[in-house]
Design a protein around this nucleic acid. Structure first.
Lengths: 336, 336
DNA sequence: CGAGTCTGCTCAATCGATGGAGCAACAATT
DNA sequence: AATTGTTGCTCCATCGATTGAGCAGACTCG
C-alpha cells in the first residue's frame, strides 16, 4: 500500500473531483455505457485510469437501489456435507456468474424455519430468483416470494406452486433396485427382497424411489416385506438406529439394501461396522447417490449419480426462458 | 395468495400511506427503534400489522446505503467437494448469522484470478470482512481489501499481511506420521520410511506437514528417500499419476504413505484400485484430513481431523476483538 | 448566414431507508 | 399566567449511482 488508507471508500464524486469532471460522466464511463452517453474517449480513459489507481469499486447498494434489476439470485440448500449438494452449489455458482448474476447461497440445515427466514432475507436483498434446493416446504417459500413478485423454482425436491427440477427418482430407483437384486442373486445364489432405508416417507423423492423399488421387485416376482421399508429420515443416526431395531426385533437384517442417500449410507455403514457385518458378511448395497470413496472402497455396492450438470442446465434454462408454475422436470440419473 | 400480485415491492411509503402516517414513523417502527424515536405503541402496532399483511421486506440496498455498517461478511473458499471445506462453510454461515452478520460465500475453484475477482465483487457489496480460505495468494486479497479499508483474515492457509488461523500442521503431521510408522511396523514386522503425497511444495501447510513428516522419521531413526516426497498438487489425478510414475521408475512403491488431503487420497485410492494394491496388498495409510466413508471403510488408515469449530471460533474471536496483522494462530487437529 | 445536427458534457431528480432537527399539543411546575 | 417538560409525531437532507433532459460549442448545408 503506497496510498494512505482511506477513512471512507472512494465514490464517483471523489473521482469526478480528481478528474475535474462530473459524477455522471464518471458513472457513465465506469458502467460501460459512455458511448451511448456520448462521453469522449480521452475523458473515458482518464477516468478509467483514475478509478484503477484509487482502487475504486462501485457501491452496489447504491447502484442496485437505482437500477430496476438486481441481478442477484438466491439459493437455499440444506447441507454442505455431501457431494451431491456440494456439486449443486458449485455448479450453481459457476453458471450464475457466467450469466452475470450474483449468487447468494444459504444453508438451512434442513430447518423449515430457517428456510423461510433465509428466503425472507434474500427478498430484502432484492433477489430476482430464489432456488429452493431440497426444501422441506418449498411451497411456503414460493408463496413468500410470489407475495413480493419474486420468481422461484424448486430443485431436488418438487413443489406444486413453482417449476421443479428433480431427478427421475422412479426410473432411477427401479433400475438401481434391479441391479442390486441381480447382484444379490449372483452373490448368494438365490433371490430375496431388499430392505429400503433412509429418507422421509412423505417426501416426494422418497415415495417415488419406494415406488421404483417396489416396481423392480414386482417385475422380478419378488414379494416384499412392508416392515423392511424404513423411511426413517435422512440423518445417519436414524438409519443406524432403524437397522439396529430391525436386527433386535427379527434377529437378523436382510442382506440386500437400497439406501436412499449417502447421508443415510453413512449410518448404514456405521451399523455394519458396529454389528460386524463387514467383509463376507457385508450386505449387497445400492445407494441413490454417489460418493467417490464409497465407489472406490466398497466392494459390493451399486451407486446412482444424480445428474447435477443436467439439472442445473434445466434450472438456468427456466430462469432464462421461463416455465409453467407447477411443471415437473425429471432428469435421469447416471449409472456408472 | 389472496392479494393481487404487486407489480412493485411494498415500501415504507406505501405502508405510511396505508397507515395514514409518515415514512419515518414506519421506518422507526420496523427497525425497532421506535421507543427511542417516541412513536406511540398503538401506531407501532398498527404499522407492524400492516407490514405483516402486505408482506413487507426492507430494501436492504436502500437501508445499507444509508447506514454506516453493512453487517455483510464475505468468505472465499476453494471447493465444496470435501468435508473439510463443507464444514468450514456451514460453520461459518451459522456463526455469522448468530452474530447478526450476513454471510456471502464464493467458491473460487482454486483459481487465483477468481479469488481476486470474488474479493472485488465483495467489496462492491460493502462487506465488512473478507475471510480468505485456502487462498492461493491471500496477501493479494488482503491488499485489495486494505485499499478499501476493509479488514481481512486468512483461514486454512496463512498470509503475511492479515491474521491467519490454520491447523497446527507440523505437530499434526508429526503425530500422524508416528502413528502410521507404528502401524506399519506392527503390520509388516519391520520399520520403513513412508511416502509423502499431495499438496503444493511451496504452500505453507504442505511444507509444514513435510517438516513434521521428516521430524517423526528422524525421531524414530528412519532415513527418508527424498524422491518419495511427492508434492504434486491437490487434484486427485495428480496424485494418481505421481504414484504411477514412481511405480514405473522404481518397480514398486512404498507400502506406507502420508496423504496430504482427502482430495489427494481420492487419487491414491484410484491408483490402488487400478494397480491392484487392495486388500492385503494395500499400503498402510495416513491422511491429513478426514472423511466419514474412508474412516468407516478403509481398514488400514489413520486420519487427522482438522478442528473446524475451534478454527472458526478463533476467526470470529478476531472479528469480534481484533488481532495483529501478521499473527498466526495454529489450532491442533484432532486424532480420533 | 441562419437553421439544423452532432458532440461532449453537466444538472438534478430519483431509488428507499434513516435519523437529526423541529413542531404542535398537552401536562406539570412555579 | 408564564415557563418548562414531555409525548408523539413529521420534515427533509442524506447515502452513491443512474439517467432523462438540457445546454453550450462545433460543424454542416442549402
Amino acid at each position: 500500500m503506497n496510498r494512505p488508507k482511506q477513512p471512507k471508500r472512494t465514490t464517483i464524486y471523489d473521482l469526478a473531483e480528481l478528474a475535474g469532471t462530473s459524477a455522471s460522466a464518471v458513472s457513465a464511463v465506469l458502467n460501460g455505457n459512455w458511448k451511448k452517453r456520448r462521453i469522449g474517449s480521452q475523458l473515458a480513459e482518464r477516468i478509467t485510469k483514475l478509478a484503477e489507481e484509487q482502487g475504486y469499486a462501485v457501491n452496489m447498494q447504491a447502484s442496485l437501489l437505482r437500477r430496476e434489476k438486481s441481478k442477484i439470485i438466491g439459493m437455499i440448500v440444506p447441507k454442505y456435507d455431501n457431494r451431491y449438494f456440494g456439486s449443486i452449489v458449485e455448479t450453481f455458482e459457476t453458471m450464475a456468474r457466467e450469466r452475470g448474476l450474483f449468487p447468494i447461497i444459504t444453508c438451512t440445515r434442513r430447518d423449515p424455519n430457517l428456510e423461510i427466514e433465509a428466503a425472507r432475507e434474500m427478498l430484502s436483498y432484492q433477489v430476482e430468483w430464489v432456488v429452493s434446493t431440497g426444501a422441506t416446504d418449498p411451497d411456503r417459500v414460493t408463496d413468500l416470494c410470489a407475495a413480493s413478485g419474486v420468481r422461484s423454482l424448486n430443485l431436488d425436491l418438487p413443489g406444486s406452486k413453482a417449476p421443479s427440477v428433480i431427478s427421475d427418482n422412479f426410473s432411477g430407483a427401479r433400475e438401481l433396485t434391479r441391479r442390486v437384486l441381480v447382484n444379490y442373486e449372483r452373490k448368494l445364489g438365490h433371490r430375496s427382497p431388499l430392505l429400503f432405508i433412509g429418507g422421509r416417507g412423505n417426501d416426494h423423492n422418497t415415495s417415488e424411489r419406494v415406488r421404483g423399488f417396489l416396481a423392480a421387485h414386482a417385475e422380478m416376482g419378488i414379494a416384499i416385506d412392508e416392515h423392511h421399508i424404513l423411511t426413517c429420515g435422512y440423518a445417519p443416526e436414524k438409519a443406524e438406529e432403524a437397522l439396529a431395531a430391525v436386527a433386535r426385533a427379527e434377529g437378523s437384517v436382510p442382506m440386500g439394501m437400497f439406501v436412499n442417500s449417502t447421508i443415510s449410507l453413512e449410518g448404514v455403514m456405521r451399523w455394519m461396522t458396529c454389528s460386524g457385518h463387514t467383509g463376507a458378511k457385508a450386505p449387497t448395497l445400492g445407494c441413490f447417490d454417489w460418493d467417490p470413496f464409497v465407489a472406490l472402497l466398497c466392494e459390493d455396492i451399486e451407486m446412482v449419480r444424480q445428474d447435477v450438470p443436467a439439472m442445473l442446465a434445466r434450472v438456468f434454462d427456466i430462469i432464462d426462458h421461463g416455465a409453467h408454475a407447477g411443471s415437473l422436470i425429471e432428469i435421469p440419473p447416471v449409472f456408472i
